[in-house]
Nucleic acid binder design. Structure first.
Length: 345
DNA sequence: CGGCTTTGACCTGCGC
DNA sequence: GCGCAGGTCAAAGCCG
């Protein structure tokens, strides 16, 4: 899980779960509420159902149910959005083919001849390695893509060239610790930084990345802190990966490496759920960003994103039996701690 | 030693 | 043509 999540008040997984005002008089754990295979010792305390506990259970059930319904609605909306996006993409493709029938296939790896380069650059030679089938696991929102195998992401000026032959462009807003100066956005891919530049409209430097997982992968990424909110990293992706996502182990390890808690724990179910959630979250962000015209309302978008992240997290976690188990363990432990019987021991 | 980051220089396109 | 700004290159240095 992203380290920042824990630091967000709005996202903090408050384990009190409403027990705050009465936990002192009840030592009854809520173990009965879930029955996964689990980590919880089911009989470490005698189960005596208290009406309050039952009430809480009912409430939790109700919330879970509601979350589930919301999740379904969200998926529906996402599906519809994707379908519309596809239609839009088709239309723009068709329009481009009409007006600029040849504009899409002019690349062919021709790099500006005047570029100062060492002659042997391997990247230019474009390894004949067979490009894997485009198996794209993210960047769903797309516009016209250059149809030649080669991406047309060479020197695309935002105002000029981008209209006709724009590579796939998407933006992501990622919360980051302001004290963390590394412009690293973890998205499951491996990136190699090839440049950094301070731009005019933003005092924070912009970092340029290429996909380093596959040398021929055309995707580029620009990362810059938001001028409005320095805690938000704006990652702009150009192009599409022409390979699958690298094995998850690496980014995971990277995350652990980046974070302070570097202890290599085996991935636990809640963590996996959070990872899945993260991906879902990213996807949702892209959808939202598509709605936010050209990112001019970045701050508002990031706020929205945070709120939705919190909601989704709650939903995903409450749907995850392992998380429930962990929750129950935590609650039980806490209750046990506070239980009067403990004092006797 | 290979891969990655840093960073100054260079290239290119746009606006005046 | 010139200046500016964004984007990229590649040598040097760092790190595991």
């Amino acid at each position: 899980m992203d380290p920042w999540i824990g630091s967000q008040p709005s996202l903090s997984l408050d384990l009190h779960v409403g027990l705050g005002h009465h936990h002192r008089h009840q030592a009854q754990p809520v173990v009965a509420l879930v029955k996964p295979k689990i980590l919880v010792e089911e009989n470490f305390l005698p189960l005596k159902k208290d009406p309050e506990v039952a009430g809480l259970e009912a409430e939790l059930q109700r919330v879970s149910e509601e979350n589930r319904r919301l999740g379904e609605m969200l998926r529906e909306v996402a599906a519809k959005y994707e379908s519309l996006q596809g239609q839009y993409s088709d239309m723009t493709n068709a329009a481009n083919n009409y007006s600029h029938p040849s504009s899409a296939s002019t690349e062919g790896g021709s790099v500006s001849p005047s570029r100062k380069r060492k002659s042997s650059d391997s990247l230019d030679g474009h390894t004949p390695s067979p490009p894997p089938p485009p198996q794209l696991s993210f960047v769903p929102e797309q516009q016209a893509e250059c149809t030649s195998g080669e991406p047309c992401n060479k020197r695309v000026r935002p105002a000029a060239a981008s209209e006709e032959c724009k590579p796939v462009v998407s933006k992501r807003y990622v919360h980051a610790d302001p004290s963390d100066l590394s412009l690293v956005v973890k998205d499951g891919y491996q990136w190699r930084k090839y440049g950094q530049k301070v731009t005019k409209d933003n005092p924070c430097p912009r970092a340029y990345f290429r996909c380093s997982f596959a040398p021929a992968c055309p995707v580029k990424k620009k990362v810059q802190r938001s001028a409005e909110d320095r805690t938000v990293l704006v990652a702009t992706y150009e192009g599409e990966h022409n390979h699958g996502q690298p094995p998850p182990a690496q980014p995971q390890q990277q995350q652990q490496h980046d974070g302070k808690n570097g202890a290599a724990k085996p991935p636990q179910a809640p963590v996996a759920a959070a990872a899945a959630l993260h991906q879902q979250h990213q996807q949702q962000k892209q959808e939202q960003e598509a709605a936010v015209v050209n990112g001019e309302a970045a701050a508002a978008a990031s706020e929205l994103i945070r709120r939705n992240l919190a909601e989704q997290m709650a939903m995903t976690l409450t749907m995850d039996p392992s998380f429930k188990a962990a929750l129950v363990t935590a609650l039980s432990g806490r209750i046990f701690e506070l239980s009067p019987t403990k004092d006797l021991n």
